[in-house]
Design a protein around this nucleic acid. Structure first.
Lengths: 118, 118
DNA sequence: TCCATATTTCGACAATAGGCGACATACCGA
DNA sequence: TCGGTATGTCGCCTATTGTCGAAATATGGA
């Protein structure tokens, strides 16, 4: 994952509706949600939503699959992981030692439920 | 950290120059870099850079301190950690169990150097 | 084939963001 | 106080983004 790609994914999430969509899709893993249902749940016009879904798709953070008339969207956790790892790791490219300790510092291991809900 | 704040931080990083600045500052921890030096290193006019530094500051991802004529900027790793944790955890608010396994899945513990450089 | 449903694409508009020249402010040394 | 250095602010311009009505496309059932 290179800089332009990360900027695409960050930009995809840096918008109210799209962040809401992504949160909804993460919560709905592994089933996914159809476009129309997202539209109803978040109360966003279907054409506006479609634009946002397109942006999220192009960033790779979500994927879609057609089931008869519905198109079901799912979060791509692997892509999300790549983005997070880039932010955590690649940022420290010139200084791997500092990076390792920084990461260890940021994530004692991974957050517990208690920490996660702060 | 709530939605609007996260959008502010994501948006702050979703731009070429600002991502470069942040990467530079993370690499330069814990010393920090003066505004003028950042301007020279990244080859960005000082007034343009100043705007970007303002956006990054307002998002909380960087902090500044004046030393005589220079203003030295540093990355705020704690804030960065908050953002990452939000992305990983708060997204799963309605479904903590799935979230815990998802996080465990994303971060077996924390990335090793090898994984980090993929 | 025709109609209803689900979703995307197009076109136009207002709002926002990015870049930068010119000017303003802060600090220091003489 | 003055001049030089370091940084920030203002204003203008252009490019990009977000929104949504209207039209187009895809699917399935009668």
């Amino acid at each position: 994952m290179d800089n332009p790609e990360v900027i695409l994914t960050l930009g995809a999430l840096a918008q109210t509706t799209r962040l809401d969509v992504f949160k909804l899709l993460i919560r709905s893993e592994p089933n996914g949600v159809a476009a129309g249902e997202i539209s109803r749940i978040l109360d966003v016009p279907h054409n506006t939503l479609s634009t946002h879904l397109g942006i999220l798709s192009r960033s790779g953070l979500i994927r879609s699959k057609r089931y008869s008339r519905s198109i079901v969207y799912r979060a791509d956790l692997e892509r999300f992981r790549e983005m997070t790892l880039f932010l955590l790791a690649d940022c420290c490219g010139g200084n791997p030692e500092t990076c390792a300790t920084a990461i260890a510092d940021l994530f004692p291991c991974y957050p517990t439920k208690e920490e996660a809900n702060v």
